[in-house]
Amino acid sequence: MSSEKTTFVYVTYIRATQQKIFDAITRPEIAARYWGHGNVSDWKVGSRWEHVRDNEEKKVNIAGDVIEIDPPKRLVISWSDPSEYDNRDKHSRVTFDLVPYEDMVRLTVTHDELEAGSGMASGISKGWPLVLSSLKSYLETDEPMDVFANPCATETAA
């Protein structure tokens, strides 16, 4: 089955070190502060990683494999609904690139291999800007954003 694939590229400049940003992505206790989820893995190439909601339920919302890791500069993971984890064709791919830029770090998140028009594509295109904006705010001012906030308070983000 081949369907059209789509790519999103998100960039943010953060006043922090590469290591701090890398830790904020890979250490669940830090990610919980600004993402409401922890990314849990032993971070070895080929290992599974899980995106776990930081509450009592500890629901796994996303799962994938660690494809490439070069701390604190680069991390490549695959990304799928946990129910589709065993079907590697369904995985999309997320690449984090951290490059020093003046007194900041340019963080680029590339999400590709996504099925065009899918619920996942629509979900992540709403999610990443919020998460990156919250990450920047958390690292620079220690004030994360409420990533589950909704303007009309009618629904709760998954």
Partner: peptide, 30 residues
């Protein structure tokens, strides 16, 4: 930082980067 570019072969592709819009939304709209 509203548009980011990626070189793919000889082509340069342009991507919408809504992260700064999110910041404005948080600060000026919500």
């Amino acid at each position: 930082n509203l548009v980011s570019t990626v070189k793919r072969g000889r082509e340069k592709l342009h991507f919408l980067n809504p992260v700064p819009l999110q910041t404005i939304y948080e600060r000026w709209i919500r």
